[in-house]
Design a protein around this nucleic acid. Sequence first.
DNA 1: ATGGCTGGCGACGCCAGA
Length: 274
Amino acid sequence: MARRAATLKLATFNVNGIGTRLPHLLGWLEKEQPDIVALQELKAMDQAFPFAEIEAAGYGAIWHGQRSWNGVALLARDVEPVESRRGLPGDPKDEQSRYLEAAVHGIVVGCLYLPNGNPQPGPKFDYKLKWMARLRRHAKTLVDIGHPVALVGDFNVIPTDEDVYDPKSWRKDALIQPESREAFEALLEQGWTDALRHVHPDERIYTFWDYFRRHAERDRGLRIDHLLLNPPLARALKNAGVDRWVRLQPKASDHAPTWVTLSRRALPSATRTR
DNA sequence: ATGGCTGGCGACGCCAGA
């Protein structure tokens, strides 16, 4: 029997259309073997989610689709995620599929697709800021529960000028506005660790490159996909990175899978025994 | 300062993304 790896790999990947990107997703799962995966921008209704192919790859899954836009999912190697929440609390009229939460391998994982907010100013930017306020309220209930929690996904926020190849060219964009950054900062101040920045404090490291001017090949990108860890989970953090090779493939998503590895020994025993 | 690419939708151009 194969010995279990000492680390657990948790990743987030905005696929920009699960239909078009299924071959990329399956190729990446096969090569990198993540244990937990949060997906965003399925751009597909529930019945179009390719569960058979994902299950054949060795993953259990839950998903929350939507016609044309949005859509989030959680995958777990060898097990079924145990859903704890579908939709962000705080606005019963919000119809957009942007939040899904589950217990997976002993960790509570919130998968989120934060609104883009462009153009700003305007109603879409207002929606973004309101959504971030709701996320902060919900995150506050999770950060101190004394159990490992991760909030991961496409946050659509460039936290600092070190997280963008050219801040000037993004000056008017919703992703870089002071209000967006302050809301993200306020979230971190609850006690969350920005895992990628924690592991790489001084490096330029991007998770998104737009489709223009060969920006991916020239590594002119943004860091907007984040993995936030609460204190019990941050203690288990071993490494973090971006699978940029996925972005350099033909017909790729504009985002790359972004991940952390976690020491199983530093996690509660439930994650080590079955 | 602007436009450049891409996916989904549903029938060729439009909306949304970031």
